[in-house]
Amino acid sequence: MSPPDLQQPVLWSLLGGGFVAAFLHAALPTHWLPFVLVGRAQRWSLARSLLAVSAAGLAHIASTVIVGSLIVAAGMALDGVIAGFLPWLSALLLFGFGTFYLIRSIVRRPVMAGGPAEDLPEPTVSHMTAFWGLVAVMALSPGEVLLPIFMSSAAQGTAALALLTLMFAIGTILGMAIFTTLARAGASILRLERLARYEGAILGFALIAIGLLIVTHQH
């Protein structure tokens, strides 16, 4: 793998465009809202939520690069098969996650309305299950916006693609972390603890809605 020519304006434009595209792509609610909702349900600290964001962001970019590489290697004939199938798996996982939280909110004994604000319900799934579930959601949903950039850059060589992948990862994780942090801060300011009795139902409906958003985007 020969090193890329860093003096080429085209390469810098490619890397800058890849970073901007990845950062803006991370602004989609599907890239940060599940981390806010699940992190809140699991009573995660900000550091733990951002750890999940980083792992899921890396998995998201890895699946994007794998799909892009397969399409480049096998030709555009695989585009509709591979790139179109994985988001459905991601949506199915979100449906399952959301349905689980929704059912648990129905069968669980609710918090008494007169109870103190700190009497919040305990997490309904294990932390490991929630963590790897979020990672799987992102891994099964490659960035369709980033795929054209990756595939159009194949002629620049593998070294340039490696740098582009790095820009994708930095932009995606940075964007997901920023929007997750801002959303968590907003929820804290609004003092949403008063809605704790209904949090399981809200979480379930929200995750199912995100899954529907992914499905709708495929049409």
Rank of each mutant, 00 (worst) to 15 (best):
T181F: 11
A183R: 03
L166G: 01
L190R: 15
R191T: 09
S188G: 09
T172A: 06
L166D: 01
S188N: 14
A187Y: 12
I173F: 03
R184P: 08
G171C: 05
F168L: 08
A183I: 07
M167I: 01
L182K: 02
M167W: 03
M167G: 02
I170W: 05
I178N: 04
A169R: 02
L174E: 00
I189R: 13
A185W: 11
T180M: 11
I170P: 00
L195H: 14
L192H: 07
A196W: 14
T172H: 06
T172Y: 01
A187K: 08
L192I: 15
L166Q: 01
L182G: 11
T172V: 09
F179V: 11
G186Q: 03
L195E: 11
G171L: 04
L182C: 13
L166I: 05
L174Q: 01
M176H: 08
I173H: 01
T180G: 10
L174K: 03
G171E: 04
M176D: 11
T180K: 06
A177P: 06
T172G: 02
M167R: 05
L190T: 09
A177C: 05
F168V: 05
I170R: 00
A169Y: 01
F168K: 02
F168D: 02
L190G: 08
I173G: 02
I170T: 10
A169C: 09
A185Y: 09
F179E: 11
I173P: 00
F168N: 02
L166F: 06
M176P: 09
I178A: 08
A185I: 12
T181A: 15
A177K: 05
S188H: 14
E193H: 13
G171N: 01
S188A: 15
T180N: 10
E193P: 04
L182F: 08
M176Y: 12
A196K: 13
L195Q: 14
T181G: 08
A185C: 04
T180A: 13
I170A: 07
L182E: 10
A187T: 13
I170G: 03
E193K: 11
A187W: 15
L190Y: 13
F168Q: 01
L182Q: 08
A177V: 06
L166P: 04
A183P: 06
L195D: 12
T181S: 15
M176G: 07
L195V: 11
L190F: 15
L192K: 10
I170K: 02
A183N: 05
R184T: 09
L195I: 09
G186A: 07
R184E: 12
L182R: 07
A185V: 09
S188W: 09
F168C: 03
I170V: 15
A177L: 05
T180F: 06
A169L: 08
A183F: 12
E193S: 12
S188R: 15
I178M: 12
S188C: 07
M167D: 03
T180P: 10
